[in-house]
Design a protein around this nucleic acid. Sequence first.
DNA 1: CATCTGCGTTAGTCATGTCTTACCGTAAGC
DNA 2: GCTTACGGTAAGACATGACTAACGCAGATG
Lengths: 105, 105
Amino acid sequence: MAALADPTRRAILDRLRDGPRAVGDLAAGLPVSRPAVSQHLRVLCDAGLLAVTPEGNRRLYALVPGGISDLRYYLDGLWDDALDAFARAARAEGTRKPDPKPQKE
Amino acid sequence: MAALADPTRRAILDRLRDGPRAVGDLAAGLPVSRPAVSQHLRVLCDAGLLAVTPEGNRRLYALVPGGISDLRYYLDGLWDDALDAFARAARAEGTRKPDPKPQKE
DNA sequence: CATCTGCGTTAGTCATGTCTTACCGTAAGC
DNA sequence: GCTTACGGTAAGACATGACTAACGCAGATG
């Protein structure tokens, strides 16, 4: 979760949406140096969000859907509990009001 | 997004899953002081994840589903693109056909 | 009206994390 | 076999952020 905090790492993930890319290719489109990109890639790999594929002399980094799935699950539960707490608070606030049942999308 | 990076803020969100709570109540169950909790609450409110309801002398903080929805949407798009890129990479690997230019560079 | 509780704010200190420069190992090309 | 391109690593400077202590303000209570 902390891996998504840095905007540079978010930019790296955005660059990887189209497919795997090499380190130099990523660093060319980012305002930071290549070692910084390597460090961010290490963090993202350690978080399980990225996978590396050595392709000859280069190293191709790609998104790993499994790592994102975990975060989605966490936010899903938080969203569900937030809706539940919101409905309960609204019900407690006005007893005369009808039961506000929010739809979960 | 950066608001979810700090573990203390995540703990605050977890405490708020059951419903709105006051600052002192939150700080009592956390290993940090009350002012720190106030600062984290300010950050979370600024991020749109929390809403405050002055209840007499106290201030009740509650989860706002809308703020979580935005993060869910972002992760949803990232998940979708990751799956797409993964399927494309698997197809390129399996068919072993000489792709002319799969990358969009 | 006086006092107490609860909360937000500020200033200051300290830890964490990010970026850069320099260096080394490894794979391709002549 | 030598040179070049590519990428990871280490050390250091720097900025950002989190935490505590002290203070001030508003609402409730007697």
